[in-house]
């Protein structure tokens, strides 16, 4: 029981991180059809930014987090403006190549500023243990889950109720019709990249708090692919649920069956799901009226 609870909490933490990364990925894909291979590097940048604000600038954790999010928004908007906007109208494959290039550039920049050696991360989420009934669980995991949940809810409300959120979904449905409403596609793309950068930064910070800050954080970003394919490339709820499923599966297989297998099992599940539901669990079903 104790072990099960431990594994569940580990799985949920990883799952939430996956959900955040996948969310940013899905938003960009939904609004502009671009598959963003730089999502992992955006996590690394976010983690290092938070590190810099806390350790190098000596800001208190809350202020450092706010500053990190602010810079993440700027970074997202800048990337859209300088890297992707000039490419509007180019074939999708070129856009994808551009994000791969972008990921190398970000990696190079992080290397140039902070060097290749990982560093221990300051304790911005307290690493104490708390007892829940008979089990002892790390409090930082619980707080990490809460933080991730907070951002996921925030983004969901944004999509449902704000003018920009509705515009984003409208563009995902029919870009030309959205244009005919006077919706600014450029603006929506910029918002999409800002959200992706913010969600990646939050995910990066959570991971760094657990494993320290370094380039290998980006490796977790790659796990976003099974997540989004499982959830459905264009589904926000799919990203969240896909993230949680993969996170939990990894934890349980790692804990009960054996380390190493935990990286393979999710792909097997993925294959099985895709056989039954080729659009993923929540992928957009084309509405056909008869």
């Amino acid at each position: 029981m104790d072990k099960f609870l431990q594994l569940t909490i580990t799985g949920l933490t990883t799952g939430m991180v996956y959900a955040l990364i996948a969310l940013g990925f899905v938003i960009i894909y939904k609004s502009s059809d671009v598959i963003n291979f730089a999502q992992g590097e955006l996590m690394v940048v976010g983690a290092y930014l938070l590190y810099a604000f806390i350790v190098q600038f000596g800001l208190p954790a809350s202020l450092a987090m706010a500053a990190t999010l602010g810079v993440a928004v700027l970074l997202g908007v800048t990337i859209e403006r300088l890297v992707l906007r000039p490419m509007i109208g180019e074939p999708i494959i070129s856009l994808i190549m551009v994000t791969i290039g972008l990921s190398s550039v970000l990696k190079g920049m992080v290397n140039a500023i902070w060097g290749p050696v990982p560093r221990p991360f300051p304790e911005f989420i307290p690493r104490a243990n708390v007892a829940i009934g008979p089990a002892v669980v790390p409090a930082d995991r619980l707080i990490a889950i809460a933080i991730a949940l907070f951002f996921l809810v925030l983004f969901t409300l944004f999509f449902r109720f704000t003018r920009e959120g509705i515009a984003m979904r409208a563009i995902a449905d029919d870009q030309q019709a959205a244009l005919s409403m006077g919706i600014s596609v450029k603006r929506v793309f910029a918002v999409a990249w800002a959200i992706a950068a913010v969600s990646a930064a939050v995910a990066g910070a959570i991971v760094a708090n657990i494993i320290g800050v370094g380039g290998e954080i980006a490796g977790l970003g790659l796990r976003v692919f099974p997540v989004v394919i499982l959830g459905g490339l264009d589904s926000v709820p799919g990203a969240v649920i896909g993230g949680l499923i993969i996170g939990l599966l990894e934890a349980y297989t790692g804990g009960y069956i054996g380390e190493g297998l935990n990286l393979i099992i999710p792909f097997i599940v993925l294959l099985l799901v895709l056989m039954v539901r080729p659009y993923g669990l929540f992928g957009k079903v084309i509405i056909e009226r008869v």
């Binding site: 003018r163 509705i166 449905d173 006077g182 919706i183």
Partner: peptide, 24 residues
């Protein structure tokens, strides 16, 4: 404001959200 040929409503948005998109 153009109402395009073939209606082109936003299929996955609700009626109300479609109207809100019109007011963008």
């Amino acid at each position: 404001f153009q109402v395009m040929e073939g209606r082109r409503v936003f299929e996955h948005l609700t009626v109300e959200e479609n109207l809100q998109a019109g007011a963008y």
